[in-house]
């Protein structure tokens, strides 16, 4: 408990210094935000173009798909905001030996990785997500009651943890391959496709998005809980279970990877 308090305090100190640096360059900040915002806008435009041609996609209406799309941005944005520095581990911290720094300080290594940086660009994604969810409310497509609202927030947090775990897992590979950026990139991009109803894909792909790189739970399965009558356990419950299991696998693998760390210069 005392430990937790210390880390909380440290997090504040470290993030505060990061924010000071970011504030030195406001234009950069706005451009990054705009970049991510714009990327999401093209995704919505894609949906509109498709629905010019078809009335519904396997039973889903445009309004429902827009909610799924927007909902998917929320866990993604939260993870992106808080743990973006994991990318640096995958791309160059390990291969250049910059990772040494984490090993020399009396703090948990994973904590140091994420406390080094916030990604303000993620606010672009969060903004799109929040807007799309809010405009979905008056459309009458959502089931709104106390339980659903509570689970809405639970689901977002669990989803973010799934994102973080998957990123951490692929970044950890760099302890062996030195630069695991490409792997992480590919895995992360997979999330884009889980923005659509998973039933449209062939069985093996459904399997992958459900069990291997389970982005299906981040967006589609849990979003559908708010759209149609479904058991909370098979959607949000499973999401939480998967998030926890995935986290332990990724974190364990990360710690194992650290023990294999070779630093640079050899």
């Amino acid at each position: 408990m005392k430990n937790l308090k210390r880390y909380f305090r440290l997090y504040k100190v470290l993030i505060a210094q990061f924010i000071k640096v970011v504030l030195q360059s406001k234009v950069d900040f706005l451009m990054g935000l705009f970049g991510f915002f714009f990327t999401q806008v093209t995704g919505i435009a894609f949906l509109y173009l498709i629905f010019e041609q078809i009335p519904s996609l396997q039973g889903w209406t445009l309004d429902q798909l827009i909610f799924i799309y927007g909902f998917a941005q929320l866990p993604r944005g939260i993870d992106h905001l808080l743990t973006d520095n994991i990318w640096k581990v995958a791309w160059w911290k390990v291969v250049t030996g910059e990772f040494d720094q984490y090993m020399l300080r009396p703090m948990n290594v994973f904590f140091q990785v994420i406390a080094e940086k916030l990604q303000p660009d993620a606010l672009g994604e969060l903004l799109v997500g929040i807007i799309l969810v809010i405009i979905s409310i008056p459309k009458g497509i959502l089931i709104i009651d106390g339980v659903h609202i509570a689970l809405f927030f639970v689901s977002i947090l669990a989803g973010a943890l799934i994102y973080t775990s998957i990123k951490l897992f692929f970044a950890t590979m760099s302890f062996w391959v030195k630069r695991s950026g490409p792997f992480l990139q590919v895995a992360y991009e997979m999330a884009d496709f889980a923005k659509y109803p998973i039933e449209i894909y062939a069985k093996p792909i459904q399997f992958i998005l459900t069990y291997v790189i389970p982005f299906g739970f981040v967006a589609y399965f849990s979003a559908s809980y708010f759209l149609v009558e479904k058991s909370a356990f098979s959607t949000i419950g499973m999401e939480c279970i998967i998030a926890v299991i995935l986290w332990f696998i990724a974190y364990g693998y990360f710690n194992y990877g650290i023990s294999k760390y070779e630093s640079a210069g050899n």
Binding site: L10, L14, V21, Q24, Q101
Partner: peptide, 27 residues
Amino acid sequence: VVFGQRTQLWWDLPLSESFTILKEIYN
């Protein structure tokens, strides 16, 4: 630890800030 070619200080901040942060890190 001091590794000659690499700094453990916060590059973009005043030196005093680095010491404040390290004070927290090392309790």
